[in-house]
């Protein structure tokens, strides 16, 4: 897909997510919207993986460590055919597998996440197995910036550097907000780039809502022997004007009026991208 088509897809996925959260009256709105472009870049352009080949031992892996942004993941997986789109209607319903954090009961999801600070270590294990078996799959994991306060992240980062896992790319959805406010005020984990470099990563800082930069960075091979960290600067609540950069939208549910306004903004976004093409 070309960059503009990917951008349009990201806008569509934001809309699907917005609809899903409003329907269920549950979800992590701001977190979903900030990383929508990252997931679209991965699933439509970067990952060597399809719904049909999900059990292929040579598939690329994606582990979503910031599990709470699950609505955007469901939207993308449904659109990519991992499960029927109608399944999204059951999100957050009684006895549905489509719960508020990823579970591997769902086709396309590798492992259960949700408690923060697990995804990088899971990915280290998967990447290490790839090295042991001589397979050339690549492992991607997406973390939050608030998540960086979890000590287990740094145990895993140390191991990734120690094991020279150049088949591992970690991405931080660096939207600078968490549920209680600015991440630097809640628990300052900066300077993240310096810290990951010190743990043996190559660090690339990009605009994480810029599709061109995302695709280019994700498709660039790692330096031999080094894991990669993409510090993706993003906007929490991206593309809903009244949700952008507002910590309360971490998991706020839109009112009927807000929902309609949000839909209109996303439709305008989608329309503009269709027109531009």
């Amino acid at each position: 897909m070309d960059i503009q088509a990917l951008e349009r897809k990201a806008a569509e996925m934001r809309k699907t997510t917005w609809e899903m959260i409003y329907r269920a009256q549950n979800g992590h709105t701001g977190s979903d919207l900030s990383c929508a472009d990252i997931l679209v870049a991965l699933y439509y352009q970067v990952l060597h993986q399809t719904a049909e080949s999900f059990s292929d031992p040579d598939r690329d892996r994606y582990v979503q460590s910031k599990g709470h942004a699950v609505e955007i993941l469901y939207s993308v997986l449904a659109d990519r055919g991992y499960f029927p789109k109608e399944d999204l209607l059951t999100y957050s319903q009684f006895n549905s597998p489509y719960i508020g954090h990823p579970t591997n009961h769902i086709n396309g999801i590798e492992l259960n996440t949700g408690s923060l600070g697990h995804g990088l270590a899971l990915s280290v294990g998967i990447a290490k197995a790839g090295k042991l078996d001589g397979r050339d799959y690549h492992v991607y994991t997406l973390m939050g910036d608030g998540e960086q306060a979890e000590g287990s992240v740094w145990e895993a980062a140390m191991a990734a550097g120690n094991f020279h896992l150049d088949n591992l790319t970690a991405i931080i959805d660096h939207n600078r907000l968490q549920i209680s406010g600015l991440t630097v005020n809640v628990m300052n984990s900066e300077p993240l780039a310096d810290k990951y470099r010190a743990f043996g990563f190559d660090v690339v800082e990009i605009d994480g809502n810029d599709m061109r930069q995302l695709v280019d960075t994700l498709q660039t091979r790692n330096t031999p022997g080094r894991p990669k960290l993409i510090l993706a600067d993003t906007i929490k609540g991206k593309d809903i004007s009244f949700a952008e950069n507002r910590p309360e939208w971490h998991h706020k549910i839109p009112t009927p009026e807000q929902y309609q306004q949000g839909l209109a903004e996303l439709d305008e976004q989608i329309g503009g991208l269709v027109h531009a093409k």
């Binding site: 492992l111 697990h118 270590a121 294990g125 998967i126 290490k128 790839g130 042991l132 140390m158 191991a159």
Partner: peptide, 26 residues
């Protein structure tokens, strides 16, 4: 020696890395 993985003094990390390894057929 190639089938022993030293994780260092990090038990949480060891368990989760083991889970990732197991998920990949180990």
């Amino acid at each position: 020696p190639d089938q022993l993985i030293e994780i260092g003094i990090a038990e949480q990390n060891s368990v989760t890395i083991a889970a990732g390894l197991a998920h990949s057929g180990k």
